[in-house]
């Protein structure tokens, strides 16, 4: 396969990752959110594998495999089980103004393009054009954590941010050193488990996973 064709496939996959980032931002239903997240992981893994093939970097194959195992299978499975256990699969979030959120998302993409374009000039890697998209994916995950009120949605936003960081590492320097990558993967896995514990605690205290209710934690000083 020619490098030009490979670069085109990488571009297409990274565009899909970005699109799924927007999908996560706009989706109301919990299960659908989980599926979108799994798809994002899948495209990320495919992208990493193709970069590994195109650049001839052996250890990226391993990263791709790990992404596939963690972000497409394991973490969605854990969250799936949690959602079913807590019987919140019917939760539909009321969100503020989806079009406005999407417009802010577009502004973030433009911003990350502006921030990244000088860096792109220095890079000679075949993945340099996807740098801006990686940063945009991080930003979109962050935006999701800000705009969502449901705990599970915020966690998925966090994980999407991590997706973006991994993507950035792949496109900037063909991946982090193996030790770092293993460490991050383990952290994410532990985080997913701890989030599960938190979900249960939050739900037993507030009987809901709507985090806006956490405002009740404030002490009434004045009275």
């Amino acid at each position: 396969m020619s490098p030009v064709f490979l670069a085109q496939v990488i571009d297409l996959l990274s565009a899909l990752v970005l699109l799924l980032g927007f999908g996560l931002l706009a989706q109301r239903r919990i299960y659908a959110l989980l599926h979108l997240f799994a798809w994002q992981g899948l495209f990320l893994a495919a992208n990493t594998a193709i970069v590994a093939y195109g650049a001839g970097v052996r250890h990226l194959y391993f990263s791709a495999l790990m992404t596939l195992a963690m972000k497409v299978a394991l973490i969605p499975y854990i969250l799936h089980v949690l959602i079913r256990r807590m019987k919140i699969e019917r939760d539909v979030e009321t969100m503020v103004n989806v079009p406005l959120t999407l417009l802010i998302g577009i502004a973030l993409v433009v911003l990350s393009y502006n921030v990244m374009s000088p860096i792109q000039e220095f890079s000679t890697l075949m993945t340099r054009s996807t740098l801006a998209i990686a940063l945009a994916t991080v930003m979109l995950g962050l935006l999701m954590m800000i705009t969502r009120r449901h705990a599970v949605a915020q966690v998925i936003g966090f994980l999407a941010m991590e997706n973006g960081l991994f993507f950035a590492a792949t496109s900037a320097t063909y991946g982090m050193p193996m030790v770092v990558e293993l460490g991050v993967a383990l952290d994410i896995l532990i985080a997913a488990l701890i989030f599960g514990v938190f979900f249960f605690q939050i739900r037993t205290t507030f009987e809901s996973l709507d985090l806006s209710k956490m405002a009740r934690l404030k002490e009434d000083v004045g009275e």
Partner: peptide, 24 residues
């Protein structure tokens, strides 16, 4: 409907952006 067309607008804008980001 505004959300439906918002998505259309988003996709069209992403088309322009990805042209600048990815295809230069």
């Amino acid at each position: 409907v505004s959300e439906f067309l918002g998505v259309a607008f988003l996709l069209a804008t992403l088309a322009i952006l990805s042209h600048f980001i990815l295809e230069r």
